[in-house]
């Protein structure tokens, strides 16, 4: 039982990273830290995809003459996640851009300070 759980260690890594990221998003008042959390959150999912593509004993799926009965890893999840990474980077860039604008307008990147300013306004 224990070995079974340990053998699935990459899922544990995925789950822990996911929860750490999620915790940061929810609990940290600083907007930058929230974004870092969001980034971790997404990275965890990338790991999930990448690990699932691995086939035991498989190599990179590059066809060469003379290869017979060669086991390949599944390349599709990696392709997918390449796209997801691009999406993630765009999100991060936009998020940081918004934080910069917030800093300009409110002079702070702390959530509670911004809320206070909005309430008084």
């Amino acid at each position: 039982m224990l070995m079974e759980l340990l053998r699935l260690y990459h899922y544990w890594v995925f789950a822990m990273l996911l929860m750490i990221g999620f915790y940061a998003v929810v609990a940290k008042p600083n907007l930058i830290k929230k974004l870092i959390g969001l980034s971790l959150f997404q990275a965890a999912v990338f790991l999930l995809y990448i690990t699932m593509g691995k086939v035991d004993g498989g190599t990179a799926p590059i066809f060469q003459p003379g290869l017979v009965n060669q086991v390949f890893s599944n390349p599709l999840p990696q392709v997918l996640i390449l796209t997801a990474i691009v999406v993630g980077i765009s999100t991060m860039a936009l998020g940081l851009g918004i934080v910069v604008r917030i800093k300009e307008e409110y002079g702070s990147t702390e959530e509670d300070v911004i809320q206070e300013i909005n309430r008084r306004w």
Binding site: L38, T91, G95, I98, R101, I102, E105, E111, Q115
Partner: peptide, 17 residues
Amino acid sequence: DRRALPAVFKYLIMGTI
């Protein structure tokens, strides 16, 4: 409207999640 910025930040976080 500057109040749009925190709103959109929230939108971004929730949307991405």
